[in-house]
Design a protein around this nucleic acid. Structure first.
Lengths: 148, 148
DNA sequence: GTCCCTGCAAACGGTTTGCACCCGG
DNA sequence: CCGGGTGCAAACCGTTTGCAGGGAC
């Protein structure tokens, strides 16, 4: 059994989620494609390329239960289809205003002191920065690109 | 004619958008309810409570043209329905993880030096911070709240 | 007069749900 | 054996589109 599969089973036990082949396949796919921000449809399609299969409803159910368990995160998305990623590390996000792609930005801390008064009265558990601009490819080509 | 209406017409002229009663009504509603982050449906309903009316398609069309013209912004949304706001001032966002409400946070600058290497290769045009945690009401009541 | 805008209704795409069966613990 | 998980198909809901008529400039 692969190292990844073992880690997944351990995570299931820790979170109290029942271990099923379909759920395993979904999480494995997301862990293997971390940073890609796949849609439910893409996950569905990928999982069904080889056995065991998982119906659309099951994929959606599992994405929800995995998200609730904290093993997967739903990524801020500009489009209509929700995008998911294995929740392995904190990161910021960069949205290209020309081609619409969403990139992960390596984590760096920001001093929140400046916002203390603006945030008063709330418990801040976490934060992330959403950057907008032109990604490397669009900056070079100067193209408008196609929103995905 | 109200001061607000005059400002709206000026904005239309500056942006090259044709002035129509329906478009005026949509922007006026958003300007009056700034910070509320209304859905298209809510805007539709509000506009149609009094003349002139605007069909669903028209409201959607106008939300798109107004967004493209920069007079309105589409707000980062956790749910499925898109939320809009008049684009009057820069601000950060706070998502309550218990009740799901989305609040505006007064703008404050953050030193981005720490992220220079992580962002290299991209043109950063703007940024905003998305905070997560417990809002004032949920923190006090300790309730789980209802996701809207 | 020309285009863009509007309104209606039908189509669309992503997501959820109801229900019967199945399988992990 | 029990309760949650699975699969299918239909329902749902927010959004978009095609088209005919109307209004802004």
């Amino acid at each position: 059994m692969s190292n990844l599969s073992r880690r997944i089973e351990t995570a299931f036990q820790a979170s109290g989620l029942r271990h099923t082949t379909q759920r395993h396949a979904v999480l494995k796919f997301l862990a293997k494609h971390s940073g890609v921000h796949s849609t439910a449809e893409e996950i569905c399609e990928a999982v069904n390329r080889r056995n065991p299969r998982a119906s659309r409803a099951t994929v959606y159910n599992n994405l929800r239960s995995l998200t609730k368990a904290g093993l997967v995160r739903e990524v801020v998305s500009e489009g209509k289809a929700a995008r998911f990623d294995a929740n392995l590390y904190r990161h910021h996000h960069f949205v290209c205003e020309r081609c619409g792609t969403l990139e992960d930005i390596d984590w760096f801390d920001m001093p929140l002191n400046a916002g203390r008064s603006a945030l008063s009265g709330r418990d801040v558990a976490s934060y992330e920065v959403l950057f907008r601009g032109a990604c490397g490819a669009c900056r070079e080509s100067g193209t408008g690109g196609t929103k995905r």
